[in-house]
Amino acid sequence: MSSAFQALVVENADTFSVAVKDVSLDQLPAGEVLIRVAYSSVNYKDGLACIPDGKILKSYPFIPGIDLAGHVVSSADSRFREGQPILATGYGIGVTHYGGFSEYARLPADWVVPLPDGLSLREAMIYGTAGFTAALSIERLEENGLSPDKGDVLVTGATGGVGGAAIAMLSKKGYRVVASTGKPEAAAYLRSLGAAEVISREDTAGSGGKPLNKQRWQAAVDSVGGSSLAAILSQIAYGGSVAASGLTGGTAVPATVFPFILRGVNLLGIDSVFCPADRRRSLWARMAGDLKPHNLEALVHREVSLQELPQALSDILNANHKGRTILRLSAS
Rank of each mutant, 00 (worst) to 15 (best):
D149C: 02
D149V: 08
D149K: 11
D149L: 07
V153N: 00
V153S: 03
V155E: 05
T156R: 06
T156M: 10
G157W: 08
G157L: 12
A158F: 02
T159R: 07
G160H: 03
G160R: 02
G160V: 10
G160K: 02
G163V: 03
A166D: 13
I167M: 01
M169Q: 13
M169D: 11
L170R: 08
S171W: 09
K172I: 05
K173E: 15
Y175M: 02
R176T: 14
V178E: 00
A179Q: 00
T181I: 04
P184G: 01
E185Q: 15
A186C: 04
A187H: 00
A187S: 09
A188K: 10
A188T: 08
R191F: 04
S192D: 15
A195R: 12
A195N: 14
A195L: 03
A196Y: 04
A196V: 14
E197A: 11
E197P: 01
V198Q: 00
I199C: 09
S200R: 07
R201V: 13
D203Y: 12
D203L: 00
G208A: 15
G208W: 00
L212W: 01
N213R: 00
N213E: 15
K214Q: 13
K214S: 07
Q215A: 15
Q215S: 13
R216D: 11
Q218K: 08
A219F: 02
A219M: 10
A219L: 12
A220E: 06
V221M: 06
D222A: 04
D222Y: 00
S223F: 12
S223R: 06
G225H: 07
S228M: 12
L229A: 05
L229K: 08
A230M: 10
A230I: 12
